[in-house]
Design a protein around this nucleic acid. Structure first.
Lengths: 171, 171
DNA sequence: TCTCAATTGCGAACCAGTCGCAACTAGTCG
DNA sequence: CGACTAGTTGCGACTGGTTCGCAATTGAGA
């Protein structure tokens, strides 16, 4: 039996099926997001997308992201402000997942769990809240960094790092 | 039997016990956060704190918040960008809670659940991730708004609001 | 009370994101 | 196929939250 990779929903299709005009720029942006290997912020999205179509403007990036968010085709992330205030984007997955951001090495891991799904159900039921978007982000120290440095502060800040990392510039 | 209110940890104490210098400005800021009835952003925190000590400067607000975050005495929230890009702050509670932001009426509700606690344990165990901070935010439509307007879009945007609200300016 | 590292105020700078408007274009209709 | 037009884009100025460098001030230990 062949292993079938989890298919991300097609953004182009998502736009066309809603009757949204598919411009050259939107196509380039959307294809870039779709094929990205990591979470892109607006600036790197622009940079990447310009390889497909150099005419794209910064404002168009933001307008397109706004559109995609509104249509719930992409999710917006903060990744615990690992890299300043900017936002990151990913194709909205079939199943919501947790983002685990390591303050030490900067890696971002993803995690799905039936318990997360149960939590969503409980929120909806107990509070009568209709969930449109949900964002669960965790900041701390990943397993590798826990092993590698099992104690002392990495950043030189007092009272910091010792139990899970920090976001200071390294000294 | 007397009902005992859940006590928020004291920020002043938290600073003093760590040997952090307690300036007039910090005291005013910290007392303001502690006694706030709603989630404050940096600007309203400044405004409120100036009633206690008018000398406080904007930069000091940000520097103090940075300090409090680093010491894990306060949590930083986005509240799903309900009101633009600014951040909100609250005294870090004994038990982590979910923030439910209604895109319709703008109210923010809080929610604690044993399932949330179990999820944290599972993240730590399954991924070997040491959690430093966790932030679970939900955007959508609260129960009152679901009752009040059981269907049509509120914002005038097409393909929007109909199942959970949006963040558009109302037309 | 003296001392000095830590903290503050000030104002300029930064940077992600937004806006108004004229020019352009995707997709429809004749 | 070519004209039409609502929707989209590029441009560049702007906004608003946040940060920074530096000189002046201050809390708290000696």
């Amino acid at each position: 039996m062949q292993q079938i990779a989890i298919q991300k929903p097609s953004l182009v299709e998502g736009l066309v099926s809603r009757g949204i005009r598919l411009t050259q720029q939107r196509r380039a942006l959307v294809e870039t997001i779709q094929s990205a290997e990591r979470h892109l912020d607006a600036a790197s999205l622009l940079e990447q997308a310009r390889k497909r179509d150099p005419r794209i403007n910064r404002a168009t990036v933001y307008r397109t992201l706004e559109l995609l968010k509104r249509l719930r085709l992409v999710d917006e992330l903060d990744l615990m402000h690992l890299q300043g205030e900017k936002h990151f984007y990913e194709v909205k997955p079939e199943v919501d997942h947790v983002h685990l951001a390591c303050f030490e090495c900067g890696k971002v891991a993803e995690f799905t769990s039936p318990i997360f799904e149960r939590l969503k159900v409980e929120i909806a039921r107990q509070k009568g809240f209709h969930i449109r978007t949900i964002r669960l982000e965790v900041g701390g120290r990943c397993s590798k960094c826990c092993e590698r440095t099992a104690g002392p502060a990495q950043c030189g800040e007092e009272d910091c790092c010792k139990d899970g990392g920090c976001r200071h510039k390294r000294k």
